[in-house]
Design a protein around this nucleic acid. Structure first.
Lengths: 208, 208
DNA sequence: TTGTCAACTGTCAGTGGCTGTCACTAGTCT
DNA sequence: AGACTAGTGACAGCCACTGACAGTTGACAA
């Protein structure tokens, strides 16, 4: 059972996270100070730093959950699937079931707004890309294990994941730039872009 | 002709840049303060910020030159080359002729050490990845123009560049991790990895 | 219930990156 | 030589972040 102390702690964290994302998305990440976030929750600035390693950490708290969610999705793919197919299916399945994961922390709508804020804030975009490479390292190891190859001598796991990651990044970016900012939109964009990779890689585009 | 004032300015900048990279690579980026860099050049901290937008800006001053160098290399490729082939050739040619570009600012050896520092410092790696996406955007536009397609409606330029960028990133990373930290090493790694992409993308790796 | 302990929090002081301001020095130009 | 102005240093201040210390409050046993 959850003790009173734990409950209070959880509430404080949730309150801080929510206030942070609300402020980041409404007035911008840089224009939001940690003091402001703490004040909104009626705690001291010091307390904020006891719950989050930094301002940036708060911005990515939900992302961290979805990253783990995607890794689990890949782990759950049947072992007979080819690497790229497994990645593709994991991504699609991920978008289909992400809502529950996200809403255990904040409203889905806030998460989506934060996604856009990350993409349009240079400092956050940089952090996002670095986090992505960390996830990609895990993905590569997972694929290598699935296929029974050594990730340190065979570059194919990392290459496959890097290519996949590149396509996902393009997808994310176009999604955030577009008008239709729904889950269905990102899902279909993912399918469309993954399907066009081989066409993009080979030959002359003019010849179609 | 270069006036005395301009000469002094250039010298100050060169001095600051060199001192910065020397300190970053020897004692670490985070453990180096701007005050330290300024003191090493006998100028005030304020002056450092008149030459560089920030500490990070100094760390990437040479990278910025090599980025432009690569873009120029791609622009110089004959228009009949297929997109991926042009990217590949530009990359190889880039590594072959990078020395002159770099040494107009700092010794090659310092540049290479800084490269490793960037890769192993989380904050710098993040910034590096963000810068890379900016370069990739330029590359995509360049390819689109070459091929006569519209970069805003046809995703293939961005996809091709993202895939290419992903491979280059893997290359950079493995290069920095490896023992052979020479230009020849990165060149041959580039060739090797680009050659293995199609193999990595399709089918079952075990069947090989 | 009460006293003790440990967890949680606030306050304060300090560091480092970064910016605005202002006065002053030193090239530049006529 | 004198006026102009780019470049600089000194100073004050903001914000992210950290360490140290003390006060408060929930947990748990006697």
């Amino acid at each position: 059972m959850e003790t009173l102390r734990e409950r209070k702690k959880r509430r404080t964290r949730e309150s801080l996270l929510r206030a942070a994302l609300e402020l980041f998305t409404s007035q911008g990440y840089e224009r939001t100070t940690v003091d402001e976030i703490a004040a909104a929750c009626e705690v001291s600035q010091r307390t904020f730093f006891r719950y989050f390693a930094g301002k940036e950490d708060a911005a990515f708290a939900v992302q961290e959950m979805t990253e783990a969610h995607f890794l689990a999705a890949l782990r759950a793919r049947p072992p007979h699937e080819a690497p790229m197919e497994a990645l593709r299916q994991a991504a699609l399945q991920d978008w289909d079931s992400i809502r529950e994961t996200v809403e255990s922390a904040v409203p889905m709508e806030l998460y989506l707004r934060m996604y856009r804020t990350i993409e349009s804030t240079p400092a956050l975009l940089a952090a996002h890309l670095r986090r992505s490479t960390a996830v990609e390292e895990s993905l590569a190891r997972l694929l290598a294990e699935r296929e029974g190859v050594d990730v340190d001598t065979d570059p194919r796991p990392r290459l496959a994941v890097a290519v996949f990651g590149g396509v996902i990044r393009v997808t994310e970016r176009q999604w955030c730039l577009g008008r239709d900012f729904s889950l269905e939109a990102v899902r279909s964009l993912t399918v469309s872009y993954l399907d066009q990779v081989s066409s993009a890689l080979q030959g002359n585009w003019r010849a179609n």
